[in-house]
Simulated scan of single mutants.
Amino acid sequence: MLVQVLLIISSAALSSCDVAHLEEISTEPPPPRPYAFSYTAGRYPGHADRQHAEVSDGSGVVRGTFSYVDPRHKVRTVDYVADKEGFHPVLSDVPPEHPADSESVAAAKDRHFQLYAKIAEEHAQHPFPDETSVPRQSEAVKAAAAKHAQLFRVIAEQHARIAAERELLQQEEEEKLHLQELGQEQ
């Protein structure tokens, strides 16, 4: 009990104290922490096909380089700077342009586009195919379609019979309930 009284008195005394004479203390931001790292890696021991190195001065500017072996087995290197303005890569070697079509590829493309244009024109003139161009069913397909249609009719008849039986049973149940209600009222 004495401890509680002392705590209440001390907290009241501290809350009414004048702290204007204390100066404001602020925490300085930590000093820049520069770093540097690099690594080299490969797909199997003793083989290096990529490397990366990066250095930061601690003030937000990062400089680095990475290299890799492209599918044509040529080493590609990218030097970069990342700062407040963004990421700025510089390729050391511009990748090659896409290869030009050979004569046979160009001729095949031309034939393809001509055929495409011919088909598009035919479809524009006759948007709906006539009976002669519609594929015809073989005897096996006709027989399977007829069997399917017959099975569908049988199933539809069974469903109709079951629905009628169910409706009849439901009417009988409703009549029983109605008669019970009438018997209870009397």
Rank of each mutant, 00 (worst) to 15 (best):
residue 98 H to F: 14
residue 171 Q to N: 14
residue 113 F to L: 10
residue 100 A to S: 06
residue 37 F to W: 01
residue 38 S to T: 04
residue 88 H to E: 06
residue 111 R to E: 05
residue 140 A to P: 00
residue 34 P to Q: 08
residue 151 L to G: 07
residue 27 T to E: 02
residue 174 E to K: 10
residue 86 G to M: 01
residue 60 G to N: 00
residue 44 Y to P: 05
residue 81 V to F: 00
residue 101 D to V: 00
residue 10 S to D: 09
residue 3 V to S: 01
residue 115 L to Y: 08
residue 176 K to T: 10
residue 179 L to F: 08
residue 122 E to A: 05
residue 123 H to K: 05
residue 150 Q to K: 07
residue 79 D to E: 14
residue 78 V to G: 03
residue 66 F to Y: 11
residue 124 A to R: 05
residue 144 A to Y: 01
residue 160 A to C: 11
residue 82 A to M: 13
residue 108 A to T: 04
residue 136 R to A: 08
residue 24 E to L: 02
residue 56 S to C: 15
residue 156 A to Y: 02
residue 178 H to N: 09
residue 111 R to S: 03
residue 177 L to C: 08
residue 11 S to M: 03
residue 169 L to E: 12
residue 132 T to E: 09
residue 79 D to C: 01
residue 107 A to G: 10
residue 144 A to I: 07
residue 156 A to D: 15
residue 55 V to K: 04
residue 97 E to R: 13
residue 133 S to E: 14
residue 112 H to A: 00
residue 33 R to H: 07
residue 171 Q to G: 09
residue 175 E to L: 15
residue 159 H to F: 13
residue 110 D to Y: 12
residue 184 Q to M: 13
residue 149 A to L: 09
residue 65 T to M: 12
residue 24 E to Y: 00
residue 120 A to I: 15
residue 95 P to F: 09
residue 46 G to H: 00
residue 109 K to V: 13
residue 169 L to F: 14
residue 107 A to L: 00
residue 177 L to Q: 11
residue 158 Q to V: 13
residue 97 E to P: 14
residue 163 A to S: 09
residue 105 V to Y: 05
residue 186 Q to S: 06
residue 158 Q to H: 06
residue 139 E to C: 03
